[in-house]
Design a protein around this nucleic acid. Structure first.
Lengths: 264, 264
DNA sequence: CAGTGGTCTAGACCACACT
DNA sequence: GTGTGGTCTAGACCACTGC
């Protein structure tokens, strides 16, 4: 939000082709630069989740471009679920708590057709403690080995059946002060808490899925026998700038549920 | 491509608000109608995969709208991977054979970092026969029970290790004449053959994933013991109009590979 | 060079929400 | 009504491709 400067200062309007003669081949369309500026505003928490951002005309004036250009920038941010447009009201910073789907990245759904709404799911936190990063976890979270982490284990159940058992690792610094009490008290999903209390917004995630046999601990927590195959889902969730902020290793029971994926 | 007519004939240019006073609340933006018309052209095979479609200006003239409106329609079709834009050359009908990724919907990748390119994968067709649809398969493919189907079973291997075993069901009518010889002869992926020989283009797919223990037949084909958990992937692939055209039930070995998913 | 898609503008009007 | 996002237009110029 600092610099209304665009590309080379020489030709501001229209299009100025490559930025600098004899320079790097870097050229990005105006709307990409606007997009980057708005993204910067989001990272700097200039606007909080749920708040409106300035109108397209305001932003256009601020950046010295036309409304259509701002529009295209916002279009892309809205497509990445970072902003939400509401006709007649404004453009809002996306938030986790408002979402219909309580579980942002959870792709598990019940086998039976429809009626079973899943309800709010029973949550049980097994433990929450401070640990140090193993080499592997450090690599996935882009930290150094032995960096401090928070680790928690929890079980999610649907209709009284424990279905998901997951270990969660978080870098200690951004989540300083996170406690079991907080986790238990918070009504909504975990990402909603991260957002409202710690200002950490998860933007996208990558999952790696395998089929495994459960270890004894998981057998007990999920109440299954040792020969029941489970879905192993390793998820790394990212904030802005592709910065990894969370690692989850979960085991899903798939006798009554399945992992649903849409391919385009 | 038939009717250059848009919404109500009364006001062609600009925007005419709701189509008919006192009529249904149906209103769709011009670019959506253009999009539908282009889609119609794709369904009617007016342009073949790999071919160019008319330029934005040509289409704009044909439909009696501005170039920007056509552009927005094409934008959405390109976003759904139905069209591919190439600057300076034109807009092309998307094709499977041209794709870098040989396997359109396959999300399995090797665990080890990078170097192993996977190669072209070894393919082995176990059988291919005519069957009749069970109630369940008929439901998934939007057919009637006992409708004629083609069923084939095949095994895919990477680096000499059999990794995927899948059953494929296809409605017999659109795929009349498909033979093992054809399948074996065709160099590329299966969807490429469907497209070039039978004119069936798969546009999107849905997968349901579970963890299972293999049945004896799968054990033998995949060379694993009965207590090795496998990923069960049921995929329904759709053409235009959300018409299901293929059902696959696959088992993936996940000891050396994993299913990779990106969540946004 | 002409033709294509890609970007940008300025202005118009529509649909929706709030007051 | 005013202000917001949503659609549409007409025209300009840029970037890339191929003749």
């Amino acid at each position: 939000m600092r610099t209304p400067q665009i590309n080379t200062p020489t030709t501001n309007a229209a299009n100025d082709g490559n930025a600098s003669a004899l320079g790097a081949p870097a050229f990005s369309p105006l709307y990409q630069q606007i997009k980057a500026q708005i993204l910067q505003g989001l990272e700097n928490a200039e606007w909080q989740p749920g708040e409106v951002i300035p109108s397209e005309f305001d932003l256009a004036a601020r950046f010295g471009v036309s409304q259509g250009t701002v529009r295209k920038a916002i279009d892309e941010l809205a497509a990445s679920n970072l902003l939400v447009r509401k006709q007649g009201k404004g453009t809002f910073v996306a938030t986790h708590s408002e979402r219909q789907v309580q579980y942002r990245f959870l792709r598990l759904e019940p086998d039976v057709g429809t009626i079973q709404t899943e309800g709010p799911a029973e949550r049980h936190i097994v433990f929450c403690r401070r640990v140090r990063a193993s080499a592997e976890i450090a690599r996935l979270l882009n930290l150094r080995t032995a960096d401090p982490l928070l680790q928690m284990r929890r079980v999610l159940g649907f209709s009284g059946i424990p279905t998901i058992c997951e270990d969660i690792w978080l870098p200690a610094t951004p989540f300083k002060g996170l406690s079991v009490a907080q986790l238990s008290a918070h009504p909504g999903a975990m990402y909603s808490l991260f957002e409202s209390v710690f200002g950490v917004r998860m933007v996208r995630a990558e999952e790696r899925i395998k089929a495994v046999s459960p270890d004894p601990a998981a057998c007990e927590l999920l109440e299954v026998s040792a020969d029941t195959p489970l879905l192993s889902v390793e998820r790394v969730a990212y904030t802005y700038n592709n910065a990894p902020m969370e690692l989850r290793r979960a085991l899903y029971r798939t006798d009554t549920h399945h992992y649903k994926n849409e391919l385009n």
